[in-house]
Design a protein around this nucleic acid. Structure first.
Lengths: 207, 207
DNA sequence: GTTTGTGAATAGTTTCACAGCA
DNA sequence: TGCTGTGAAACTATTCACAAAC
């Protein structure tokens, strides 16, 4: 099935599979089946096999998947193999939490810069990263940082997004509760924490 | 179209519309069109109208939507109108950021309790909430807290989830990079921050 | 015997275009 | 005229079941 358009949903799931594969590999496991890996991750085994099938043959019939090569394949597809440097804008509670967040390393990410507008924070260090003046965002392209994380209040988010685009950023992870309008060449993924919480009551039994 | 199954995707979008409606209402706007509200939120106007159509007539042809009644409708559908109290487990960087997070109020949420396993944190206060011993999670049902937020490291997440379920929680917002297995009556929504970042490079132009 | 990879069937969602109401 | 509400069409994704590979 190698010559098909890749469903977005498949791309959304690949990091899940990657996390599971890394998890098992760290425990010393070398091979696994789609059934085992899928059950670990709460997905269906045929869903996982179908997703892999868009890219070629990852496994061996009768045997399963070799974790090391599976990890390599997914990393390459998602372009995580080269490593990526990101800048976080906003060094408040959320921004600081992101700077300290241990989960980015698994996917080859490093938060290499932090910015804030508050003069009292500028110059301080959080997790080894010096907080810089948000006015200096333009330096990102020179520093080869192509991903921006928006962790400022919603009211400031659109202008921060504009500044990131100006600075040559190609992808934005947006934590603000705002629609971020950018040129088509820039990809935005929004995580609106309160909004995700907001659909929980709908699915909860009455009470 | 009142007698249809509601698509999950529609439910996922309702909080978006709600946020936009509240935003406009706060600016003193009383009525709006699907075209205007949708463009503000980066969605398509017919998508929004279609979503509303599953629930009945929210608007007036030729006129548009009355924001106050639109907000009321969505709040009722999502069951946000009664207000909800949530407990956060884990008072580290992320948990503390959530306790300070201003965005929950819009949807009628209050973080009413916080728990941690670290004796040095227990008894301290963050944003007016006293951090309690995680061993006391069972008190949640007596306190009528039915939503739990998991903000602990992945290794501790499954047992925290079990404890939350034991405590009678009906919905869980999970920030840990782990699959959370719970009985069917409990709804889990997972926000895996690193994983969302992980699909950004795929969509970014080469470089 | 076991497990993958995938066409075909099913299910779900988006998009369109316009009838009908204000 | 302007805007909503919605069937029908188009598209996308999930699920199944099994042939092929080891």
């Amino acid at each position: 099935m190698r010559y098909h358009k890749i469903p977005d949903e498949t791309i959304r799931r690949l990091p899940v599979y990657l996390r599971g594969a890394i998890h098992l590999a760290q425990q010393g496991v070398e091979n696994t089946s789609s059934e085992h890996l899928a059950s670990l991750l709460g997905v269906k085994s045929w869903q996982m096999r179908k997703d892999f099938s868009y890219f070629g043959d990852f496994g061996t019939p009768g045997v399963g998947y070799h974790l090391e090569s599976l990890i390599g394949h997914i990393n390459r597809i998602l372009r995580l193999d080269a490593g990526h440097r990101a800048a976080v804008v906003g060094a408040g509670n959320l921004g600081s939490a992101l700077l300290a967040f241990p989960g980015f390393g698994m996917y080859g990410f490093e938060i290499a810069a932090a910015f804030d507008i508050d003069k009292r924070k500028i110059g301080r260090t959080r997790n080894g990263v010096v907080i810089e003046d948000v006015a200096k965002l333009a330096s990102l392209s020179r520093r080869k940082i192509y991903m921006g994380i928006i962790a400022v209040p919603g009211s400031a988010a659109p202008e921060v997004a504009d500044a990131l685009v100006q600075a040559g950023v190609k992808g934005i992870l947006n934590f603000s509760p705002r629609y971020i309008a950018v040129p088509k060449r820039v990809k935005v993924i929004t995580i609106d924490i309160a909004m995700d919480l907001a659909r929980l009551p709908y699915y909860m039994p009455a009470g």
